[in-house]
Nucleic acid binder design. Sequence first.
RNA 1: GCUGGCGUAGCUCAGUGGUAGAGCAGUGCACUCGUAAUGCACAGGUCGAGGGUUCGAGUCCCUCCGCCAGCUCCA
Length: 668
Amino acid sequence: MEQHEERIELSLPGGDSMEVVAGTTAAEVARRIGPRLAREAVVARYDGRLVDLAQPLLEGGKLELITLDAPEGLDVLRHTTAHVLAQAVLRLYPGTKLAIGPTIEDGFYYDFDLPRPIGPEDLPAIEAEMARIVQEDLPIIREEGGRQEWIERFRAAGQPYKVEILEEIPEATVSLYRQGEFVDLCRGPHLPSTGRLRAFKLLSIAGAYWRGDEKRPMLTRIYGTAFKSKEELEEHLARLEQARKRDHRRLGRELELFAVSEEVGQGLPLWLPKGATIRRVLERYIVDLELQEGYEHVYTPPLARTELYKTSGHWEHYRENMYPPMKVDDEELVLRPMNCPHHIMIYKQKPHSYRELPIRIAELGLMHRYERSGVLTGLSRVRGMTLNDAHIFCTPEQIKEEFLRVVRLIQRVYQDLGFQEYVYTLSRRDPENREKFVDLPEMWEKAERLIREALDEIGVSYREDIGGAAFYGPKLDVDVKSAAGKFETISTVQVDFYLPERFGLEYVGVDNRLHRPVMIHRGVISTMERMTAFLIELYAGAFPVWLAPVQGVFLPIAERHVEYARAWTEEGRRRGLRLEVDMRDEKLNRKIREAELQKVPFMLVVGDREVEEESVAVRRRGQGDAGHLPVRDFLDELEKLARERRLDLHLAAASSPGVAASSGVPAS
RNA sequence: GCUGGCGUAGCUCAGUGGUAGAGCAGUGCACUCGUAAUGCACAGGUCGAGGGUUCGAGUCCCUCCGCCAGCUCCA
């Protein structure tokens, strides 16, 4: 023991501070603060860095003890769980080569190169081994070691992936974590011992390329998650189950919205009548809005001569996503993957004056893209799709104004669709990748600068995505938070100096000379396919009135009430409402149940009383009885909800449900 | 495309070498019904496709197709 111990001052959260001997560990500090913290702390933040509890604190500074209630604590817990997973796998499958095992949102994974393939049925055994490692309560010890030395040791241990990682680390010393017989290269920090693990579960198993490179070996990735308590784990698993119930593929089948048929082809969905209704509503909505905004809607064919795409550059930069050409007579035709060249040809039909600009050409354009079979998913990732597309041809001076108009249009549409959270992403080219992006650096910089200026003007913050641009220019993507909590790209706005050049577009300026217009490519509601998939999941199939394929269903109590229901259904249809009658010879309870399962917004019970007084007994989806209403009033209200694109089912004029429901006899 | 898993009735799923099953949906009949499943009966399948092993294949093997998870890619 040192005679003259150096003392250091640690400042703790809340303004407290503590003086301790240099070299005291964070765990010791926690013990001094209190037994509960000593028990709960998993890691510490020491001058901004996360460190192990066992780390000796040599200098004064800020110290914060972190428990599993903090996101960082949970992250460390999951990281340690990943190590325990790796240890278990090594015990069960000797000869396994370890790759990497990071934490991800809501969990962690670890990639292995296993001596033999394993499947989901092997996960319970691995979990059991993990539980044993937790039982063993192995201390987790950080070690520092020479990089070169550990390269040798991992090589000798038959861990080539670790060797590869080490070879790329610039520092001469590296940190390792040891628990029992297991040691892994890792920055840390980690929990103090394996016994600290709480609730964890292995969720799935899948392939993943080493380093995400399809030319490298395919590894086995095991996904799992961990929480601080069994209850929280159960809650999380329940949330996953809920998400599965929202899956648009499942709801698409249950609600008869769309179908995919092997006979038709991969990624080529069929729109069933109800799904087609949603699509038609969306299409009419966006087309009307665009017409109001000064767009001109056109129709152009989904096929074109290959030459057109050679001119546009698609053939050079986008060919891997295009269906191969077909030869007919003397022409070679391809299915178009984008609509821009067709719209450019429309622009080129006649000379243009600066006075006409901007010209905004819009189309619900059918396109086909060849997507690798593994990526196809229901309606959200398909090979044949209709894009809400438009191309704005404008002068360079008009770019910013036009860009802003598009962003405002997007915001307006999101409000109507009920999108709450979205983020802007400036997708730029990857300057390294000259294959994918046209190699005109000044052009890219100019376009990026213009987008930034416009974004600053509108006052929105944005992320940046290097390499996410279109081949011809940078773009602003708008990613909307999905029902699953992930952000999906819905809208996009792109500034393009390239295609006008390729196609030699021009307009006559004030100076009576020819100038090159600029194009803005923009999609607001994405493809009809993707938007529909997104909305199905967002609303879990329970659409607001304006989008619901069936807005109300009449439920006649007995056969003698069917005629009444039918007559009013027809009246409603004449008014543009989407109503149906459940004419089946079934009991009311049954009809209600099925209308609820079909997520119809309004159920209209009609029996003797309603026929007598020309009313309906209204039942709102998920909310039960909503009282009586004269039929005409109900239809008026329904029209209003649809017209105003209301997201709720509130009926202004409904009588109080209590009164109507309890009486059971016609009001005198 | 790659790795793993899965394809049995419209849907959800049993069925591990010996005569293809259940529930729901569908059809018929009865009931005429008041706020989340009325009862009874009937019908429904070249077990994804093709080949092979076997006396015998939904079941074992091979090839192909599709679907699911993930990787890669992306609207």
